[in-house]
């Protein structure tokens, strides 16, 4: 492999035997890995994601099982009917919040270098540019997917055992669609982060991309579904969040949603679209 090929470029002089190596996708990946892990904010955000997924899940399970009574005015009193009936939603309440944090993290990772001007140094080191985008995506998915999946599976078993010990209704990992929707939710969270990252590099501003990914990708579909007449439902099903809901919820509510498999395919389609736009713009625009 050319990996070991050395470039004795510079004339003798300033260095003690330093030899540069060919810039490869692997080395760009290492570069992005170092970048991500040398920012304190990365660590804080990762801890926050795990804390929110597990913390809120456990808290909701305790509330639903009646061990803890919420004290706020509207949420007070005994566990609601909805909480009793949908144990999976209860336990995954933290994961639904983590979606926002991961999407924001993705946007920041995508836009941050454009804001600081570091991108010009980065593109001077990798003038072909696209390896930088691929590396950022790989590092993001490589770090977040394991963390989110472990946290989400952990909170599932933790939450269910809390519910079980209070004799509340539970679902089992082996129940129909449960494993799929739990794993699916983890992938959905990271997938939205990837869309955030793509939008961040596309829009080059953290605020703008956070706004777009949270507003247009997460909230607008929910709003549209609620507000538009039913005749629109066929179309709205294909929006990212609704396509995501198709494989992140265990129980299928009739024809209101796509099939899980189709939903997953549509969601992947959105990711590919966002990344493709980002790649096209990165390649073409002046840095």
């Amino acid at each position: 492999m050319s990996e070991q090929q050395a470039f004795a470029q510079g004339p003798e002089g300033l260095t003690d035997g330093f030899t540069a190596r060919r810039t490869s996708q692997w080395r760009v990946l290492r570069s992005e890995w170092i970048k991500l892990l040398t920012l304190r904010s990365t660590w804080i955000t990762l801890i926050a994601i795990v804390a929110v997924i597990i913390g809120f899940g456990v808290l909701s399970a305790l509330v639903a099982s009646g061990s803890v009574t919420p004290s706020s005015s509207n949420g007070g009193g005994p566990p609601t009917e909805a909480m009793r009936r949908n144990p999976l939603n209860t336990v995954m309440s933290g994961a639904n919040l983590a979606v926002l944090i991961v999407a924001v993290l993705g946007s920041i990772i995508g836009a941050r270098e454009f804001a600081s001007g570091l991108i010009r140094t980065t593109f001077s080191a990798v003038p072909r540019r696209l390896p930088v985008l691929w590396a950022k995506l790989m590092v993001f998915v490589g770090v977040l997917l394991p963390i989110v999946l472990v946290a989400i599976v952990a909170v599932f078993f933790l939450g269910m055992s809390l519910l079980a010990s209070a004799d509340a209704q539970t679902v089992a990992w082996s129940d129909d669609g449960v494993a799929r929707s739990v794993i699916g939710l983890g992938c959905y969270i990271v997938g939205l982060g990837v869309i955030g990252l793509a939008l961040g590099t596309l829009l080059r501003g953290t605020a703008a991309s956070i706004g777009v990914v949270i507003g247009a990708v997460i909230f607008v579909p929910a709003l549209a579904t609620a507000l538009l007449p039913e005749s629109w439902d066929e179309v709205l099903k294909y929006l990212p969040s609704n396509a995501g809901a198709a494989f992140t919820t265990a129980s299928q509510s009739g024809g209101a949603m796509l099939d899980p498999g189709v939903g997953a395919a549509v969601f992947v389609g959105w990711i590919v679209l966002a990344v493709a736009c980002a790649a096209w713009v990165i390649k073409r625009r002046d840095a």
């Binding site: 510079g10 970048k35 990798v126």
Partner: peptide
């Protein structure tokens, strides 16, 4: 093949995170 080892440049000093 190894851009940083071919041309070292400084455009803006504060192009750092």
């Amino acid at each position: 093949p190894a851009p940083l080892a071919e041309l070292g440049a400084m455009l803006e000093a504060k192009a750092v995170d």
